[in-house]
Write a protein that binds this DNA or RNA. Structure first.
Lengths: 336, 336
DNA sequence: ATTTGACGACCTCCGCCGGAC
DNA sequence: TGTCCGGCGGAGGTCGTCAAA
């Protein structure tokens, strides 16, 4: 069942059928009706591969999810999927490890699947224009920005929270409660990415409030956001006999692992040690104790990312949206 | 950048490049290397639309994920995505609510995206053949089976654990530890689905070991797997003054919410009450206390689901794989 | 002036035949 | 005789162009 069969059945040319199918004006009403009737009668459906081939453009939007096991991304992904479907596009997801090259993955995806646009869910903060030259379609960085990089702000869009400020406020909250010896478990202090940014917020909050930074209170997990590495990092701080009354981690799952390490070493949370984090996962509202955390507006981030990308496909300029993370008071911090 | 450019650059014919690209045997090793080097150097990627076109079929496999917020599915999804990519197919995901009609969603997806096959991640256990007649491509039910339905076993594949037996074993473990008053929080006792199946396993374990079932120890959440509803259900059992020393829930996240409800009502886990569940999420290894749970082999389920589906696309018969859920001993249960 | 037909290009695969060694 | 490679044509739908009715 091809366009030729329809043409033959109607006694018209292939060109004419194509014109009807694509709603072009230069076809007489009588021929149009005859063709549409034949299409309906024979149940003809145009071959999408052939259409894509000649139009050289699809309805595909790629999503590169960097960091498998990131529960925060899982939440965003569902929103993104829903919004892309709603707009009549097709979502093409691609999951990569947190140490993989998302730009390369996106560029390959773009060409393999003929993407109209790209949405990066997590990535590096220090792109250079030459790196991103690989990407030939509009793209949005969801949950991060290019603050360490050198991209022209007009060349890409981003939707994120202010990582530095959010970390600053989380640590400031601990200081307000009287904490001075505040440990931190972070993937890295200098990864030119989310971890460095939030670490800088931690350092700035200490400094601003006259608290001296103590390297003994810091654990780096070697770039890893996973719970086992976080658990080991927290144990490391404890085992070296460091003196601290609070812990800051850059994600909820890291906080859950850190709390586990504290409890396993005989330190109760929050009685012996306060813990604060950033993310606001649903599950951390049911941990014991309930986690106090800075909630990222996941739903809003997903919606806005897709909305901005779709508008870019229609020629709208790039946008950089900075959303606010609000604290969700739990029971993992207390006054000292 | 097309196959012609590669041919020109290597000084060979288009046919030869095509032969190399498709791993055909009748090409000399030297030419093969030269062509592959040029492909690498120029970053050539074959046009998928053209490939699909000439092969007269697409490379799309649909995934209908039923139940947003299901962390267990998030883990499977990553494995499924990786395996589909590896096999050279394209994954087309579709997320729907846990009360939505996955068959209808799959059928629509199949027509819109011209799918080769479908993978249902979560769904009803009681399909009838007429319902599934909507689906015109091979499909695999991942994480569930049609045990309440009337499908011909040869018409579909499934990869799952034995829900009834797994629940039976979990509850049996509690009985072995001396528990007789075992509460259960389940979405529903009669949803013709996973909840009913696991509830039946709970009831069977009680009966088999001479423990009388007490309706006061049961909470139904109204078909909901979410933590807030589970929390309320658990609180309901406590508030009605029921006497129990252990709780069985059908998922890890439900257990986390149940433990929270217990602790909030002054009952320590496991000292005052043991809790056991089914799933084996990474996060439940870091909750306090560590959850004792029946681990579903998520990685294996994802891999096998894709593997079986791909073989079905090549004409292989349907298969029904029953995987084993092994207990992960935590610290949420104790002897009484 | 309006409508319709014919044609080539787009891109890849694959089977087939022919030539070269 | 066997191995390797070139070349051809058909498959599919769209779209611009040109010619014709």
């Amino acid at each position: 069942m091809t366009i030729k069969d329809i043409a033959k059945a109607c006694g018209v040319s292939v060109s004419t059928v194509s014109r009807v199918l694509n709603n072009r004006p230069d076809v007489s009403e009588s021929v149009r009706r005859r063709v549409l009737a034949a299409v309906e009668a024979k149940g003809y459906i145009p071959n999408n591969s052939a259409r894509d081939l000649v139009r050289s453009r699809t309805d595909a939007i790629g999503i590169v999810v960097r960091g498998t096991g990131n529960l925060f991304f899982s939440a965003i992904l569902k929103t993104v999927s829903r919004e892309i479907d709603r707009a009549g596009f097709t979502m093409v997801p691609h999951f990569i490890g947190s140490d993989a090259d998302e730009v390369k993955a996106g560029a390959i995806l773009e060409r393999e699947k003929k993407l109209r646009g790209l949405l990066f869910l997590g990535g590096r903060y220090d792109y250079t224009p030459s790196e991103l030259a690989l990407v030939g379609v509009p793209y949005v960085c969801c949950s991060y920005t290019n603050c360490f990089g050198s991209l022209d702000a007009g060349d890409y869009s981003s939707v994120s929270i202010d990582d530095y400020l959010t970390a600053y406020r989380a640590v400031e909250r601990l200081i307000q409660l009287g904490h001075r010896r505040i440990a931190a478990v972070v993937p890295s202090c200098s990864d030119r990415s989310v971890s460095e940014l939030r670490y800088n917020g931690y350092r700035a909050a200490l400094k601003e409030h006259g608290v001296e930074f103590d390297p003994a209170l810091l654990a780096e997990t070697g770039g890893c956001f996973e719970m086992p590495a976080t658990y080991r990092g927290m144990c490391g701080i404890i085992e070296r006999g460091a003196d601290f009354s609070a812990v800051f981690t850059i994600s909820d799952t890291m906080a859950i692992a850190a709390i586990k390490a504290l409890e396993d070493n005989g330190r109760r949370v929050p009685e012996d040690c306060s813990v604060i984090a950033i993310d606001g996962l649903p599950v951390s509202e049911y941990t014991i104790p309930t986690l106090t955390t800075m909630v990222q507006p996941a739903e809003e981030m997903g919606m806005e990312s897709v909305s901005i990308l779709l508008k870019m496909l229609e020629g709208a300029p790039a946008r950089h949206l900075l959303l606010e993370a609000r604290i969700r008071e739990g029971a993992s911090i207390k006054q000292v």
